[in-house]
């Protein structure tokens, strides 16, 4: 298992956003998470990438525990220096790209490898250029984020996450902020990564994409996992009434 979330609970104030969520992702697996907005999908990703702290349950990476409930029932994270290592296992691609506007495209990809992972500038730049070529935007290396289209920016964001060589990459609705005609180029890149067996978890509303690319689909609603399984099973033959209702909206 690359990542394993066990019995995750998360509250904002008195509102419980995630209730007893458990799932794991194996190496090379591509998991899509679908569900209506407000169902807790994004919060789940943010908990998995340590942007939010959980209120109950356990998080495991590479068979090592990053957070868990102690005997008194309180959640305890590993110390800061170890957490840093756990963070390095995972990458996250945001809905809003969140590129660093004051850095060139190349520097967006090299700054963290150089200053966080202490790799040589040469190595970091080679890796970055390889990734940009793969994303089809090598000619933009010297440009600044504001000069790129949304689709290009999101591809840079994916490259930036990959430059850190994570074990697993999380996507938080990577195409939701894009004009419809630009979603294709981003989905193509993710599909390409799937073919290379990159381990990925994708929160998405692109049902055809989820169906075509994932090994497994998770349907969430109201902070719980309602149903999960093989994409064809879930999409063509949903067992749960709520799943059916949700999918019907998309068929129209």
């Amino acid at each position: 298992m690359i990542v394993e979330m066990k019995n995750i609970c998360k509250r904002f104030g008195s509102h419980e956003v995630l209730t007893d969520i458990s799932f794991g992702v194996d190496s090379g697996e591509v998991v899509s998470i679908i569900g209506p907005s407000g169902s807790g999908k994004s919060t789940l990703l943010r908990c998995a990438t340590f942007l939010e702290t959980i209120d109950g349950g356990e998080i495991w990476y590479m068979n090592e525990r990053a957070a868990g409930t102690d005997t008194s029932g309180r959640v305890e994270y590993v110390p800061q220096k170890d957490l840093h290592r756990f963070r390095s296992y995972c990458g996250l691609v945001f809905q809003q790209f969140n590129l660093f506007p004051h850095y060139s495209i190349l520097r967006n990809l090299t700054d963290a490898p150089i200053h966080v992972q202490h790799r040589s500038r040469e190595e970091a730049e080679d890796t970055a250029m390889d990734l940009l070529r793969k994303m089809g935007i090598a000619d933009k290396a010297k440009a600044y984020p504001y000069q790129l289209s949304g689709g290009q920016q999101q591809r840079v964001a994916i490259a930036r996450a990959l430059a850190m060589r994570p074990e697993i990459l999380f996507f938080d609705e990577p195409t939701s902020a894009l004009d419809p005609e630009l979603t294709g180029e981003v989905l193509k890149v993710i599909r390409q990564l799937a073919e290379e067996h990159m381990t990925m978890v994708v929160v998405t509303h692109e049902m055809p994409f989820a169906k075509a690319v994932s090994n497994r689909v998770i349907f969430m609603d109201g902070g719980v996992i309602v149903e999960q399984g093989d994409p064809y099973e879930v999409f063509e033959n949903p067992r749960e009434e709520r799943t059916k209702q949700f999918l019907r909206v998309f068929e129209r």
Partner: peptide, 13 residues
């Protein structure tokens, strides 16, 4: 934007 902070945290800064 808070996203700048989050992007940096996820990258391990």
């Amino acid at each position: 934007p808070v996203g700048q902070n989050e992007a940096a945290v996820v990258l391990g800064y």
